[in-house]
Nucleic acid binder design. Sequence first.
DNA 1: TAGAAAACAGAACGAACGTTCGCTCTACCC
DNA 2: GGGTAGAGCGAACGTTCGTTCTGTTTTCTA
Lengths: 257, 257
Amino acid sequence: MNSVLENTSKKIGAPGIVAEINSLAHFIENFPLQGEALYATVFNRNSEIVQTQKARFAVANLEKILSATFQVSATSGFDRMSLRDLSRQTGMSMGSIYSCISKKEDIALMIADIVRLSSELTRQHAMQSDSLWTKIEQSIRFHLYASTLLQPWYFFLYFETRCLPEAQQRESKQIELDGIKSFEAQIKSGVESGEFHTEDARMVANTIVVLLEDWYLKPWKTLSPWKANISIEQREKQINNYSQSIIELVRKLLAEN
Amino acid sequence: MNSVLENTSKKIGAPGIVAEINSLAHFIENFPLQGEALYATVFNRNSEIVQTQKARFAVANLEKILSATFQVSATSGFDRMSLRDLSRQTGMSMGSIYSCISKKEDIALMIADIVRLSSELTRQHAMQSDSLWTKIEQSIRFHLYASTLLQPWYFFLYFETRCLPEAQQRESKQIELDGIKSFEAQIKSGVESGEFHTEDARMVANTIVVLLEDWYLKPWKTLSPWKANISIEQREKQINNYSQSIIELVRKLLAEN
DNA sequence: TAGAAAACAGAACGAACGTTCGCTCTACCC
DNA sequence: GGGTAGAGCGAACGTTCGTTCTGTTTTCTA
């Protein structure tokens, strides 16, 4: 356990993202939840859930299982996805799957955990900026970056929350409310200092949050035409367009009159 | 078949809402999809699906079945709701349920149909206003009114679209895209005439639509504290607050600079 | 390289699912 | 007021689900 991401109490320490990040490429360099490291994190943070003991097998199988889960459940939902579907899609036998997890629900739990971790990481880091406006801007950009890289994860949590135990459901709602509150607080203090002008900070904050959700929930909107595999440069352009749209919109909402 | 709502081809004629509606109470007087008439409409528009022939029985049972579906599936989802749950909740036997519908999926189909009808009705009617700004304002208000009265229906369609056949899934997405396009077109023509000012009509339109969705998707946000049974006057106040928030926001987004 | 431990395979299990079937009941018609 | 169509009922059906179990193979270690 040499990483803050790997403890089992699921508290996180100081994030490993450096302060000044201004492009997707740069974000990717610093974002810890990608590739093999992502599944290693899943393994380490869920050692009580994951049955497989050897990290080498566990990480490889978690990747297969979770990827297949995203593929299958994207169209028909988690409930309709049977473990036989999963077995077919992963090429693993029932026994293999159950030597990795112990319940179907575990899959959903692990996904929810990673999304919460990702949200926490990006939000905490955005808070490191010094000016109010930069904090808002960075929060928006980081959230878009992270939810792009982990799109299937964010999407899954949103639509499958109801598969989770009630305590986890409440926690997911709380994360959204915290997001709104965080933006609201920044806007309000900007209003007090005379930097921003609005009579409804709550509404502006809420608008930001729902626009951020829209990004990973509705990739089919022509607003952000989503292809499975496009180059990082193209994706960067897409995100920049959308984040600029949001930022311009917020700027107008917070401008004088 | 004496009403435009009752034909089986599911085309709708001129809506029965009169032009000038400025309060929830007034909207309720004119909105055809309420109370018993709502379930009569379900029956008439789905005569091929509904097995029960006598309207008297069919309407009563559809009300029981659909109400129970909303109650049960709100927390656990449509897939997890078994027909035995439904039997318990409605007090009907399995046989009775199947003498009303012929497949579980039929329930979702009927709900989807009503939501589409409601969207169509409210949008068409809002278009009857003469000024551009009033059209936008009315579209927003009507949508909030309708999605409040039919909140469980709108909520269900959003979250259970994936239970529907693929053609229906595409249709649901199309409705959202049409909604955006409709707002976008009005904003654009306002920009051309100099009435509005924005460089990103699409984004403003999209923002309106996601804020409208937010209303019926997240009743738990303290933004719009949702209690099951509050008086019409209180509900009216709630909606007015929220619609005023949206309208003010849009006004600011379309104002000069 | 022998032996223990872990991972894997897939048949088997009981529960629960959506649906059907044979039957009873009831309201309305001539 | 007997006949009948249709509504209501609930046990039973075949299927599929999540999960378990019993071997077999692979991997690690000494």
